[in-house]
Design a protein around this nucleic acid. Sequence first.
DNA 1: ACCTAAACGCAAATTTTTAGCGTTAGCGGC
DNA 2: GCCGCTAACGCTAAAAATTTGCGTTTAGGT
Lengths: 183, 183
Amino acid sequence: MAREMLRQGGRSARIQAEVHRTVQELLKSMDRSEITVPMIAEKAGVTPSTIYRRWGDLSELLADVAVARMRPIADPEDTGAMASDLEAFILQYVEEMSSRVGRALLADVLGSLESDAPVKCCQYTYHHLETLRERALARGETPFDIDNAIDFVVAPIVYHILFGDRELAPDYCRALVSRFFVK
Amino acid sequence: MAREMLRQGGRSARIQAEVHRTVQELLKSMDRSEITVPMIAEKAGVTPSTIYRRWGDLSELLADVAVARMRPIADPEDTGAMASDLEAFILQYVEEMSSRVGRALLADVLGSLESDAPVKCCQYTYHHLETLRERALARGETPFDIDNAIDFVVAPIVYHILFGDRELAPDYCRALVSRFFVK
DNA sequence: ACCTAAACGCAAATTTTTAGCGTTAGCGGC
DNA sequence: GCCGCTAACGCTAAAAATTTGCGTTTAGGT
């Protein structure tokens, strides 16, 4: 579920915020597999049935929280040039997502395939790249293609994070970016 | 869990096979979100506690089944040339994985990050690419680099399957392969 | 053939999830 | 500002799923 709120103010919003805060709190201190809905409900001061009715089940709540956490709070850093902008963005992305909690976020988002969490999640990335692209245009640089950047820089990184088949050293990430630009 | 069986014969193996078969059967007729452990147990003719003790929980059982289903039963088709071999393999991979059940398989595998399901899963892909590479070597062709193939062909495809942000038309997949070879 | 321990079945205890129903409170119309 | 409508909540009981203890079966080795 995790449907759009019909009421966006007052008690409903407070509960949403409190539940989200509680989930994030719990994720810091314990593993995702030990978290239960009644546990969240108690710490958040609501009844379990509220959570079940609003989010459906635990995985959808976790996906909802994960998407909210991944929502960008600021534009990517402006380093003065397109190539270094992309590199900085990618390095930060890897920093956040390859950590234990980052991997859990990705898994939660992808765990509820029927919701729109995955699409939202990658729209954030797309939007960031769009920002970098427009910044490059404003500077008079020849901008990169966003879809290509996703295919050849972001996708490999996400793949290796998810499957855990390779160390994501900064050098490797930088190589992905530079290969993308020389091509 | 989904630990390696300490006993690989007799009753234990029969139960494993029967449970796997039952899960696959159920996945064909209903959505993953409606499947429960007691339901599987009844159809498979075992006690729920057996499943819980052996696999831990539903997501790990599903991951176990998914990995087993993804285990290659045959080498990729030999088309006579490296480029067309890779293209054929990729097209078949997309065919299998972008379907409703394929996406569910991927989600199940990635859903249990703590198990070794994800690693196993991408090892299968790696192994297939290795087969293609050795085949190319035997033909006297200049072989491709497997890691690069994963980064620039497989990863983009998996990304788009998981995030559902793009139609995976055959033309697009072919373009990925051909761009990989010209680079 | 016998021994040991892994794996299972059974059933009770616990926990989680669902569902009904009355109550609260956000939001729009007046 | 007051009122009506109904989404959203709390509470509780029922249903379902999960865990756990204990005795039994059975694979794998000696």
